[in-house]
Design a binder for these strands. Structure first.
Lengths: 340, 340
DNA sequence: TATTAGCACTCATATTTAACGAGTGCTAAT
DNA sequence: ATTAGCACTCGTTAAATATGAGTGCTAATA
């Protein structure tokens, strides 16, 4: 168990280190207004904190830096649950409102806003259309042999794909197929469409089947291709200002990792669904991010579940401010109305 | 005017420097099989080449490196017009064919291929939809107050935008408006749509105008937003392997510049239309690219004018190979059929 | 018993100095 | 016209040294 003084010292070390990125020595601490003890006393406590694994020294004659365990303790015990600052949230909401009504643009704006506020890099993942429901299917012929299949979801997202016929298909067959699909499949989750179309084909009478099977299968193959959820990266440049990323050895893995859109998407999708969650250093299990911490959260837009947003900074990130800002943005997004 | 020997030496210096990234000394050159002269002789010619501004020395006791003027001379006089290697082009065509029939994906694939072949970074700009022509407009109601406007171009590109009504609009009015637009505007360049809709509104009879004006203006406002041409970046990582980008001072401006999608698009769009063009060092006028050379070219896909592709590497890039590969890729794209 | 002053010791970083060697330019010989 | 020879330049590397921030321990103090 930590004494009050040790707690005070731990907190001071982390706060100081977060600001300066330099190991913190006992003498520096003793000069702080909130620490009235001599450097020797502080040294003794520091030795204890080190024994407990909360802080460590880069080498004998340096000051101490927080260990990952230390950060964990700090985040869990010393970062007070933030209360939403109404004025600030209102201001953010206002800025979001001004940008656009399009959800896509709103998300981008939110990511940019968050990285501006914190000076860290932000990744925002849009809604995964797989879970949305079919509102309508339509088909537009382009010429004799090509056409566009349109899929509209209940959330107003539209996807389209150009298809090519093997041979000419009668317009009536197309029309009838589309009508059939609309009749039977509206309300189906997009992710299930492929299977459901297969089922519908199986249900067809033999006579119908010959007519519609080709067309249906064509559509089936197009909806099978899942469009990746939209991904947006904000404030990528910010990393250049972090002292721990001033060398290529650290910078390169980070940049290479963050540029791999697909992997990034999977990673965000695989995060456990929760409100704000902080992952410290190697906790995230990603080699390229071993010196980074991540604050993630699912967010809702206009009250509806939407996607995931993540803030990535060095392990030595300002957790207090980061968590606070993340909370504000999420709240602002939640309050933003898409229509009015 | 350059003597034959000076030409030989200039070429050797540049070839050598392109490979090693190290200043080239007279003794190194004299050991080459194609240079039979003594180091002293070479030194004399080097001094002349330096007087002419074709090469320069980083400091007194280093070898020589090519100047921008030198590279220019090299590219203009010493890089022979490449002849398309049929076998190689065929192989590239094959690899493109395998990836997809979707133009978007083909372009990405081409960019990736080009950067793999050269180890430089590639930027590809897709077609600018502004110049394509309207094939069809359609509207899909989502609910009482929202709907999706769909715009299909003659090239098969589809764009969609969600619109919100101020008040309820009768389905017949919507239908009629769409019919009107399709009747009158099919074939119009997308870039002109906004103006043309305005003209059509003006032509309406007073009675009609009251009915349709709102709806038309709503559509007008959506087509006014121009979607940016699709941009694709390939082989961004390659820059990390270039010795001239091993320091943050050089790396950072490059990465910051290349990540600015909008600026990149404008830059590519502003390039003069031509076949293969080489811009050396500061010639491109971009501060962040002052140590880079760029090989650009417009390309056609399936014979149709399509977009622009650019290859960015250090000034010390392998121009011969770069130009050759660019030629091959462009030819392969030209031959690729979109439908069959 | 808890705190603090004092001091020897450690070790990364900065500074200085010296040695090295790749490359040049010039001169004189071929 | 070409080349061998040589003094000179200057960036790079390595070793030697100095600096100083910070620690751990011990003994004095409240």
């Amino acid at each position: 168990m930590l004494t009050d003084r040790q707690l005070l010292i731990l907190r001071a070390i982390i706060d100081d280190y977060i600001q300066t990125a330099q190991p913190v020595g006992s003498r520096t601490l003793s000069k702080r207004d909130d620490l009235t003890f001599s450097s020797a006393t502080i040294r003794n406590d520091m030795a204890d904190l080190e024994d407990m694994g909360l802080i460590e020294k880069p080498h004998t004659s340096a000051g101490r830096i927080p260990s990952e365990v230390g950060y964990r303790y700090y985040v869990d015990h010393l970062v007070e649950k933030q209360i939403i600052d109404e004025r600030e949230t209102g201001r953010l909401e206002e800025r979001l409102k001004q940008s656009s009504k399009e959800s896509e643009i709103l998300i981008r704006q939110a990511a940019d806003l968050l990285s501006d506020l914190t000076n860290y890099t932000t990744v925002a993942l849009g809604p995964n259309s797989q879970s949305e429901r079919l509102a309508r299917v339509d088909f537009m012929p382009l010429d004799e042999r090509r056409g566009v299949v349109l899929i509209v979801t209940d959330q107003g997202h539209v996807e389209h794909r150009t298809v090519m016929f093997e041979s000419r298909v009668a317009p009536e067959v197309i029309e009838e197929t589309i009508r059939l699909l609309n009749d039977r499949l509206v309300g189906t989750a997009i992710g299930q469409l492929k299977v459901r179309i297969g089922e519908e084909v199986a249900k067809l009478q033999l006579a119908q089947r010959q007519q519609y099977e080709n067309m249906m299968q064509l559509i089936q193959s197009t909806v099978g291709i899942q469009t990746p959820s939209s991904l947006y990266l904000g404030g990528k440049k910010n990393i250049f200002n972090q002292p721990e990323f001033q060398t290529l050895d650290t910078l390169r893995p980070f940049l290479e990792w963050i540029d791999e859109q697909e992997r990034l998407t999977h990673w965000l999708e695989s995060l456990p669904n929760r409100e704000i969650y902080v992952s410290i250093g190697s906790e995230n299990g990603i080699v390229a991010l071993q010196n980074c911490s991540v604050i993630t959260s699912d967010y809702t837009l206009d009250g509806k579940t939407f996607g995931t947003i993540a803030m990535i900074g060095p392990t030595r990130m300002n957790y207090r401010h980061g968590v606070q800002m993340m909370g504000q943005i999420i709240e602002a997004l939640r309050r933003t109305k898409l229509d009015e």
